[in-house]
Deep mutational scan, measured.
Amino acid sequence: MDVFMKGLSKAKEGVVAAAEKTKQGVAEAAGKTKEGVLYVGSKTKEGVVHGVATVAEKTKEQVTNVGGAVVTGVTAVAQKTVEGAGSIAAATGFVKKDQLGKNEEGAPQEGILEDMPVDPDNEAYEMPSEEGYQDYEPEA
C-alpha cells in the first residue's frame, strides 16, 4: 500500500510541476504579447503594419512553449490582441483601416495563427491545408 501511495504522490508532483510550467509559459506569452502591443503603439504610420505582424510573430513563438489545451486559448487571445492593436492603430490615425491585415508588401496577414497546427491532446499534428499553395516548377 505504501508503494501505491508513494507512486500516487510522485504522479501528483509531476502534474503540479507540469501545471506550473504551463502557467509560466502562458505568463511569458502574455508578456511578449504586451511587449508587441507597446511596440505597435510606438510606431509611426509606416511601421504600424509591420508592428502588428511582430506582435503576432512574438506571440506565436511563445505559444510553442505552452502545451496542451492552453495553446488553443493563448492563440485565440493573441489573435484578438493583434486585431485590437490594429483597431487602436486605425482609431489613433497611425494607419488607414484599409491597410490593416496586410503586410508591407500588401499581402493579407489573416491566418497567421489560424494555420498553425495545434492539437490540445498532444496526440497528432496535421499540416495546414494546401489550398493556398501553388506547385513550383523550376525553369529549365
Rank of each mutant, 00 (worst) to 15 (best):
1 M>D: 02
2 D>Y: 12
4 F>K: 00
5 M>R: 03
5 M>A: 02
6 K>Y: 08
7 G>V: 14
9 S>I: 14
9 S>T: 03
10 K>F: 00
12 K>L: 15
13 E>M: 00
13 E>T: 10
15 V>S: 00
19 A>C: 06
20 E>P: 00
20 E>Q: 06
21 K>G: 00
21 K>Y: 13
21 K>W: 04
23 K>W: 15
23 K>P: 01
23 K>D: 00
27 A>D: 03
28 E>N: 09
29 A>S: 03
29 A>F: 01
30 A>M: 08
30 A>H: 00
31 G>Y: 09
31 G>I: 13
33 T>D: 00
33 T>I: 09
33 T>F: 02
33 T>S: 06
35 E>F: 12
37 V>A: 10
38 L>G: 08
38 L>Q: 04
39 Y>D: 15
40 V>D: 00
41 G>I: 09
43 K>P: 00
43 K>M: 04
46 E>G: 04
46 E>A: 10
47 G>I: 09
48 V>P: 14
48 V>H: 00
49 V>H: 00
49 V>M: 15
49 V>S: 06
50 H>Q: 01
50 H>S: 09
51 G>T: 14
51 G>E: 01
51 G>S: 12
52 V>M: 01
55 V>A: 11
55 V>G: 02
55 V>R: 02
56 A>L: 03
57 E>D: 06
58 K>S: 09
59 T>I: 09
59 T>K: 01
63 V>M: 02
63 V>D: 02
64 T>I: 08
65 N>V: 15
66 V>T: 05
66 V>R: 01
67 G>N: 01
69 A>R: 15
69 A>H: 15
72 T>D: 12
73 G>W: 13
75 T>L: 14
76 A>K: 13
78 A>H: 07
78 A>G: 09
80 K>M: 10
80 K>W: 15
80 K>S: 01
81 T>P: 01
82 V>R: 08
82 V>W: 01
83 E>R: 08
83 E>C: 01
85 A>W: 02
86 G>P: 03
87 S>L: 15
88 I>A: 07
90 A>L: 15
91 A>W: 12
93 G>P: 08
93 G>D: 06
96 K>Q: 13
96 K>I: 14
97 K>Q: 03
98 D>L: 09
98 D>G: 13
98 D>Q: 14
100 L>I: 12
103 N>S: 06
103 N>D: 10
105 E>N: 13
106 G>V: 12
106 G>D: 03
108 P>A: 09
109 Q>F: 03
109 Q>L: 10
109 Q>S: 05
112 I>D: 05
113 L>W: 03
114 E>K: 06
115 D>V: 12
115 D>M: 12
117 P>D: 07
117 P>E: 13
119 D>G: 15
120 P>M: 11
120 P>G: 06
120 P>Q: 06
120 P>L: 04
121 D>S: 13
121 D>A: 06
121 D>N: 13
121 D>R: 07
122 N>M: 05
122 N>K: 07
122 N>C: 08
122 N>I: 07
123 E>T: 12
123 E>S: 08
124 A>D: 05
126 E>F: 08
126 E>H: 13
126 E>P: 11
127 M>I: 10
127 M>A: 12
128 P>I: 09
128 P>Q: 06
128 P>Y: 09
129 S>C: 05
129 S>N: 13
130 E>P: 12
130 E>A: 11
131 E>N: 10
132 G>P: 03
132 G>I: 12
132 G>V: 02
133 Y>D: 12
134 Q>K: 15
135 D>I: 11
135 D>A: 02
135 D>Y: 13
135 D>V: 04
137 E>T: 05
138 P>H: 07
138 P>S: 01
139 E>A: 05
140 A>M: 07
